[in-house]
Design a protein around this nucleic acid. Structure first.
Ligand SMILES: [Mn+2]
Ligand SMILES: [Mn+2]
Ligand SMILES: [Zn+2]
Ligand SMILES: [Zn+2]
Lengths: 138, 138
DNA sequence: TCAATAAATGCACTTCCATTGCATTGGTTT
DNA sequence: AAACCAATGCAATGGAAGTGCATTTATTGA
């Protein structure tokens, strides 16, 4: 388990008990989570700490925001070598209308989107909604 | 101006003074607007009425929601024969990071997006962020 | 080692948008 | 006109995001 400590350290994130717990929580989850999800997982922790921890993770680029259109921001761990910032590296997200979970489809990069003359594309958010594999697999 | 009355009527929306005003406001605007935008345009009107008017318009499919990632829902009039619901008819939206305005790119349909086996795509939201024509045109 | 310093945490409070309940007003129908 | 239903207005609520400040915890370096 020393690995996580080392990883955080390599990213200039001081290791604390709470940060380790939150990191592990994110790593175990296969879906993007809300602040409330984390809050519920750690009853004792203060919401502000979670909020700021996630913010730190985001600033240090080990998690990325997921805006799936539910109105509630979700977060997911970045993949190895993920460059959330670089437009060409953007993957799409899938939101299940049934179980309400959102997953990163990291293998599915967002295609080049043409915009009209005069417009400059800097960033793209693409969310597909429908039924996920777990829910469709009846 | 009888046209708008007739149009609303054809959509099973009772014509009221407020609804006419809001409809005209939306029609004049070339960008997606927030509830607050409308609120500011009609100081006298109650926020709830605006809220419910827009909701009615949405239910009757003459406006569609625009989720541009700012966290604030915006609305825009549907084009002639716009079928917001039908996936193949979905257009993309452009949000300017400079002027903060969001426009419908109704000519630009969203390309077919491949999803992994087991996933069923029902709906797609695609938002391009960058610099709009007005702002880039220096 | 221990004091000085900086970072992380916890609590309280605030803001902003979305949404609802209920009373009132206004328009339609018979 | 009476009865009915829809639209409006006011007040209150709820949820999520964000901030200020005091306190605790970790780091540094004298
Ligand atoms: Mn992702
Ligand atoms: Mn649109
Ligand atoms: Zn599902
Ligand atoms: Zn602009």
């Amino acid at each position: 388990m020393q690995k996580i400590e080392q990883f955080l350290d390599s990213k200039d994130i001081r290791v604390t008990a709470m940060r380790l717990l939150i990191y592990k929580f994110l790593a175990e989850k296969q879906v993007a989570v809300t602040l409330s999800d984390i809050e519920n997982a750690f009853e004792k922790a203060d919401r502000t700490t979670l909020y700021r921890t996630i913010k730190t993770f985001e600033e240090k680029a080990i998690v990325h925001k997921v805006d799936d259109g539910t109105g509630i921001t979700k977060y997911a761990l970045c993949e190895q070598g993920c460059n959330c910032e670089i437009e060409t590296d953007l993957h799409l997200h899938f939101h299940c209308n049934n179980c309400n979970e959102t997953v990163c489809l990291t293998e599915h990069k967002i295609p080049q989107i043409k915009v009209p003359d005069g417009f400059v594309s800097e960033n793209v958010n693409l969310v597909v909604k429908g039924i996920c594999d777990k829910c469709s697999g009846q």
